[in-house]
Amino acid sequence: MRIDSTHKPWMIVTLAAIAVGVLVYVPYAIHTPEPGGGTPIGLMFGSIALGLMLFAALLSVRKRFPIWRIGRTKIWMRAHLWLGFLALPMVLFHSAFHARGVLTAVLMWLTIIVVVSGIAGAWLQHTLPTKIYREVPFETIYDQIPVIRRQLAAEAADRAFDVTQRLAPATGPGATVVDTLLGIPTMEAETAEFDKFFADVVKPYLAEEGTRRNELGSREAAHEHFDNFRREFPEAAWEPISAIEEICEEKRQLDHQARLHRLLHGWLLVHLPFSAALILLAIIHAIGALRY
């Protein structure tokens, strides 16, 4: 989700709400000996904050039922972003910038963590998709990456066998007496070296995600390796060698995509649990505050 000009009205409304909050809070704080959540204005801010938090939590419900005609998900997401952000200043005004009790201190920290993680997530959602599009031309569906990787490994094995075949026309299938008599070099040593390289380096690299320590994790190092083989081998073998190099490049990009994807969505591992705890404890706090 990019934060573009469509967010402008939301930003204006949010900033206006904060400004109104400041205008209400400052005189109240100056003239009240002990401003706090239990005063009428404090309660007002608290009610607004809780309402904003509950609305923000409804986004997950909205996404669960996408066919419900209750507004487009895009609008809900924008509302979640800006009204969720607005909850933090409302909480600060409600608490008069202090949290002396155990539960209130926990709530304050949860609010800060949730809002900050949300802001971080919004920034990641704004920047990373473009980065992925730019840096991962071979982008695929994230959940398909293991499947694709296995296919790449199988294809690379075929290509490696193809290299061997192209280098041993006199001994492999279809070899003729003429070829043998012509003395086409078999390049046994080089082929063995290539096979060893494929078995020890390429295959493990393609087998697992990541493996950045593998030599092929670096595009330049991989190109140097494959270039060496291209220099050693005749032109007939260049196509499969280059294909293997391309396969490694695709695998490299999928690894990069996986990393960026985890970054793009991993912040939710903080945001969601803390939000859940925040909602529950905020409701308990509201009931407790009304009770006492």
Binding site: T140, V147, R262, L269, P273
Partner: peptide
């Protein structure tokens, strides 16, 4: 190349999000 049944399984990342949220509620 794609496995067409992938959508039937929850992504591990997604699963962790919900499990952690449930754990946070319980805690």
């Amino acid at each position: 190349r794609h496995d067409l049944n992938y959508f039937k399984r929850m992504s591990p990342l997604r699963a962790w999000q919900w499990w952690l949220a449930a754990a946070a509620l319980i805690v």
